[in-house]
Structures are given as structure tokens and as C-alpha cells.
């Protein structure tokens, strides 16, 4: 029978994160869940439970949908951005939390003690980042809104992958300079699938039931863009800080007389993470990260303005 497939690499099992990292993740998650419950109840009141519950089932079932890509592989989707767009970020977070807890409880897809981290990875980060980016372009024409949705979905997946790599790295389970590019690389592809399906789904919903999309929006969209941006920046900030920490690589270098090349080694593995003239330090990678995120947001925004001039603006709430 069909076993609900999820992206295996984003659900961390127990044993792969250190206790301090688990605790910190839980702390962040619990605070945000508290706000999610409070705000969601304010907006939806007694409709919250049936709506969020059934939507969570939808996300779970949606993860069962796949489409053949090449050979025997198939692409599929996670749905955090979709949930945020149609339900709003707080209710979306509650729905994703339900999905993640059920997957962990019933299928051991993700651990129990590390569930706080998994909720951070697959609930909090992609929902808020995706929603923030979506807000940038949602008031433009339909085509632009869909582009914004695609970018938001892709970036949200990359962010989730990045924070997974960071959590594993800080736990001492993995070396940053392999984990980060590996996760980002693999999920760059997964993110494309996510973007395609999310856009197609939103496009369908917009054509058939536009009022649902209007309902899902939360007041103060500017605030959300900032929130999404801040989260993306914070996560990116930690990445190069981590890789700058002294690693076994130097020991390896010492052992085999490669001391003079030791300093260059990380940068051969991560050519994309440095800015040449800033040279060899974690600082350059931090700047690279910030530049990267700002570039994405900037391009997205410019695209919006550009396309607005060439397409008739349809009234979109």
C-alpha cells in the first residue's frame, strides 16, 4: 500500500541532535506555538480545530502526491508555503505541527525528543519565510503573484535545508562544510518541485475559489515580509559562523603534512561561500550569505515592478 513519502532528509531522527540543541529548538518552537495558538484562535475562534485539523490531513495527503521526473525518481511536495498562503502563517504553522507530530508519533518519521527541532525546520522556518516572500508580490498581477509564490516555495525549502544542516553541525553530528552544501544542493532540486506544485495548486485555487486566498491573508503584510527576511538572514548568518570554527580538517592536515594547504581546504570545498577579495575567514562567508538573501529578495521585488508594467493589474485583495 502507499506509504506517505516525505523528504527523508528534513525529518531528523532521535540521536542525531545533541541535548542542548534539542532543548534550544524546543524553546523556540514552544514560544512560537504559544503565539500560534493564541493568534489562530483569535482569528478563527471555534472554526480553528476542524479547519486546521482537516487542512493538516490535506498536507499529509498532499505529500503522497508525486509526479515522475526521470528514470524511477519522482518529485513531490512538502506544503509549508502552500499552507501559509491559504491558511495564514499561524494556522499554517499549527497544521504543519500536527503533520510533523503525527509523522513522528505514528511512523517514526522524525524523532520524538527532536520534534521541537523538526517543527522548527519544517513548520516554523519555511512557513514564515515562504509567507514573507509571498507577501512581497501578492498584490501585483496574477502572473507576478505566481512567480512570487514559486520563489517563496523554493527559498522556504532551501532555508529548511540550511537550518537542518546547521542543527546537525552544531550537534557535532556532521561537518558543516559538507552538510551545508550537500543539503542546499539536494534541496535546490527538491525546491523546484515544491515551487512547481505550489504554484499550480495556488493557481487552481485562485481560479476556482479566490475568496479562500483573500481570507487567508493576515493583516499587516509588511510586517511579515520583514519577519520572513529576518529569519532568512538569521539562519544564513549562522551558517558561515559555524564553518569558521576550528575543525578536524586542521588535524588531518597536520597528520599528513598538509599544514600549508590546510587553510585553503575549506574554500576549495565551498567555492561559492566566499567573496574572493575578503579572503579566508568566516566573515567573508557571512557577507556572502547576506548578499545572497538580499539578492533573492531584491530580484523578486524588481521582477514584481517590472512585470507590473507589462501586465494589466487585476484587482487582487
Amino acid at each position: 500500500m502507499i506509504f506517505p513519502a516525505s523528504v527523508q532528509l528534513l525529518h531528523i531522527p532521535d540521536g542525531f541532535l545533541s541535548l542542548p540543541i534539542s532543548v534550544v529548538s524546543w524553546a523556540i518552537t514552544l514560544v512560537l506555538l504559544y503565539f500560534a495558538v493564541r493568534n489562530a484562535q483569535q482569528v478563527l475562534d471555534e472554526r480553528l480545530v476542524p479547519l486546521a485539523g482537516i487542512m493538516a490531513a490535506f498536507i499529509f495527503a498532499g505529500q503522497m502526491l508525486n509526479f515522475p521526473v526521470a528514470g524511477g525518481t519522482s518529485g513531490h511536495f512538502i506544503g509549508a508555503t502552500l499552507a501559509a498562503i491559504v491558511l495564514g502563517p499561524w494556522v499554517g504553522l499549527l497544521a504543519m505541527t500536527a503533520v510533523i507530530s503525527l509523522q513522528a508519533l505514528l511512523f517514526q518519521d522524525g524523532g520524538l525528543v527532536v520534534m521541537g527541532a523538526n517543527i522548527l525546520i519544517m513548520g516554523i522556518v519555511p512557513t514564515f519565510v515562504g509567507y514573507g516572500l509571498y507577501q512581497l508580490l501578492r498584490n501585483q498581477s496574477r502572473g507576478v503573484m505566481l512567480v512570487g509564490t514559486a520563489v517563496a516555495s523554493w527559498v522556504s525549502i532551501e532555508m529548511a535545508a540550511l537550518i537542518t544542516a546547521l542543527l546537525i553541525g552544531f550537534s557535532g553530528t556532521s561537518a558543516f562544510n559538507v552538510a551545508v552544501p550537500a543539503m542546499l544542493g539536494v534541496h535546490a532540486l527538491v525546491g523546484i518541485g515544491e515551487a512547481l506544485i505550489t504554484v499550480a495548486a495556488i493557481s487552481f485555487i485562485q481560479r476556482t475559489r479566490p475568496q479562500i486566498l483573500a481570507e487567508g491573508s493576515v493583516a499587516g503584510s509588511g510586517r511579515w515580509v520583514v519577519a520572513g527576511l529576518v529569519i532568512a538572514l538569521v539562519v544564513t548568518l549562522f551558517a558561515p559562523l559555524a564553518s569558521a570554527s576550528p575543525d578536524g580538517l586542521e588535524w588531518v592536515a597536520g597528520e599528513h603534512g598538509f599544514l600549508q594547504t590546510a587553510k585553503d581546504a575549506p574554500y576549495q570545498i565551498l567555492p561559492d561561500y566566499t567573496i574572493p577579495f575578503l579572503g579566508e575567514s568566516g566573515f567573508s562567508t557571512i557577507v556572502a550569505g547576506i548578499v545572497g538573501v538580499l539578492l533573492v529578495m531584491g530580484i523578486t521585488y524588481l521582477l514584481g515592478r517590472l512585470l507590473q508594467r507589462h501586465e494589466p493589474v487585476t484587482s487582487n485583495q
Partner: peptide, 21 residues
Amino acid sequence: WRAKVTGSMAGQLFVRSFDRS
């Protein structure tokens, strides 16, 4: 195209779920 079809299925499923709720 295949992604679009899958996405439409997701959209359909969503609308049905929403109505069910």
C-alpha cells in the same frame, strides 16, 4: 506539464478538504 497536473490535483484536493471542514 506533469507538475502542473499534480498541482491541480493538489489544488482540487485542497478545495474539497476546505469544503469538508
